[in-house]
Design a binder for these strands. Structure first.
Lengths: 240, 240
DNA sequence: AAGTGGTCTAGACCACACA
DNA sequence: GTGTGGTCTAGACCACTTG
C-alpha cells in the first residue's frame, strides 16, 4: 500500500505502535496478554509484515512488549522502571542555572598509579593524572571535584594544564566513552569539607562517583561533592 | 532487537552497527564526521538498503549518529550523557539484597485532598489515600515511605488495606504509568526521623521523591527516605 | 510438526533540504 | 533539479520453541 498523500502526519508503523500502546495503557491488554500475531496485524492494517515488525520492535525497545518465538508477542510485565539522569559537565550545569561559572584548580599531580588509583581505574600499573578542583556558581562553592585520569588511555591529558578549562568539558570533547557507572550517596560534611564548600560541619551533601570506560579501557574516575542545600538530582522516567 | 549475549552469530545489521560504532569509538570518525551514505554501505556489505537503514536506526536510537535529509548521516556531538537508575519497589529491592523483607503500615487515611495533596498530585479537588509505612530489611529499618494516591485515577485502592502488601508492588501490578519524575536529595535526620529509622540525629539520608502519571492523570506521589549509611543509588550509562 | 518471530531482499515512491 | 534519508512492499528462508 502506498501512503495516501495529503493528510498523513504519522507513519503507518507509528500508528500501529500508538494503537497497541493505547490498548496497553488503558488496561484493555493487561500484562501477559498476547497481542495479535504479526500476520493478523498485517491484515488489520493492510500492510506488509516489515511494517508491523518495525512497529513492534519499537515497543520492545521501550519495554512495552516481549516477543517470544513460536508463542507470540506479549504485553510485558513491568518489574522495575527506569529513570534517566542527564549529566552535563559542571560548567554546563551551572550555566544552565543562569549563574556565572568559575573554578579553581587546587591540585594537578602526574604520578605512577598508587593502589588507590589502580583499584579505582581497574588497571595493573601505569601513570595517572590526579586533579582536584573547586567549582563555583556565581561566586559560591558549587562542587568539589576529585579526579584521576588514566594516561595510558588519554595521553593527551599530560599536555593540558587544566587551569583555564575544567577537566570535565575537556574530556567530553576529547574522549568518547562507551560505558559509565555512577554511585550516588549522601554524606555529611566533615570540618575539612565544610571549610572548602563554605557550609556548616554536619551539613548534608550529595556525593556522585563516576567510573568511565572506553570499551575495556578505564578512562577516568571522578568524585563530585555537592552541598545538598542547593542541589538535587532529577530523573525522568523511561520505560526501557 | 536481538540480544546476542552468547556465542550467537550476529545479524548483518548488528555487524554494520558494530563496525560503525567501532569507528566512532576509536576516534577515527570524530563528532560531526559524515559516515558513508546508505547506498555506499549497501555496496560495501552487499546487502539491501533496509538492512543498512535498520543498522543506522539503532545507532540513532543510542545517540551515536544523526541523520539529515539531503546531507547524510553524521557522528553525533555529545553534550551530555545519560545515566539510568533501575527503580524496583522496595520489597523487590530488599529481596535482591538477600535480606528478609518486612514492613509496618503506620498510617492509612482516606480524605478529601488538602492543599498539599493538590499541589503534589496536580489536581484541583478529589479524594486521596494517604499511606505511611516503614520498610525493614532483615529486621532493620530500611526506608520510611510517605505516599498519597489519587483515588480518581486509582479507585480500586480504596478497597485495599495495605497491611499485608505494601503499596509500591500493588500499584506496580494494578496501574500502568506513562511518565514519572524523580527528585533525589540528601538530608540529615531530625530527631523524629532518627527515632523512626533508628539512626543518629544528624545522620545523612537519601530522599527520593517520585511523581507518577498515566497520560495526563496524576497517579501517586511518594517520598522515600533511606539511611545513607547502607544505601546508595547506582546508575548505568546509556548513550540515549 | 507447525507456526511464531528474526532477518533479509530488490525493488519503489515520497518529502525534504540543499545547490 | 538532485540526491539524501523515510517509509513501504511482497515476497523469502531460517531458527527456535512449544503444543
Amino acid at each position: 500500500m502506498k501512503r495516501t498523500d495529503g493528510k498523513d502526519e504519522p507513519s503507518l508503523n507509528d500508528r500501529i505502535k500508538n494503537d497497541i500502546e493505547a490498548n496497553i495503557m488503558s488496561g484493555a491488554w493487561p500484562p501477559g496478554h498476547r497481542i495479535p500475531y504479526e500476520h493478523e496485524l498485517t491484515q488489520q492494517y493492510n500492510c506488509s509484515r516489515m511494517t508491523v515488525s518495525k512497529a513492534i520492535a519499537g515497543l520492545v525497545d521501550r519495554g512495552f512488549v516481549e516477543r517470544k518465538k513460536r508463542a507470540g508477542t506479549f504485553v510485558a510485565i513491568p518489574n522495575a522502571h527506569r529513570a534517566c539522569i542527564n549529566f552535563f559537565d559542571v560548567r554546563t550545569e551551572v550555566s544552565r542555572l543562569g549563574k556565572i561559572y568559575d573554578f579553581d584548580l587546587i591540585e594537578r599531580i602526574e604520578r605512577k598509579a598508587t593502589a588507590f588509583d589502580r583499584s579505582h581505574l581497574d588497571i595493573r600499573a601505569g601513570n595517572i593524572l590526579q586533579l582536584a578542583c573547586l567549582h563555583f556558581a556565581s561566586g559560591k562553592p558549587y562542587a568539589l571535584e576529585n579526579r584521576i585520569i588514566n594516561l595510558e588511555q588519554v595521553p593527551e591529558a599530560c599536555a593540558v594544564a587544566f587551569d583555564h578549562e575544567p577537566p570535565g568539558p575537556w574530556l567530553f570533547e576529547h574522549v568518547r566513552w562507551s560505558d559509565a557507572r555512577h554511585k550516588i550517596s549522601a554524606i555529611t560534611a566533615d570540618p575539612g569539607l565544610a571549610n572548602i564548600l563554605q557550609i556548616k560541619v554536619g551539613a548534608a551533601c550529595i556525593e556522585i562517583e563516576r567510573w568511565t570506560w572506553r570499551n575495556k579501557g578505564s578512562i577516568t574516575y571522578v568524585k563530585q561533592i555537592h552541598p545538598a542545600e542547593h542541589y538535587s538530582l532529577s530523573a525522568e522516567f523511561v520505560a526501557r
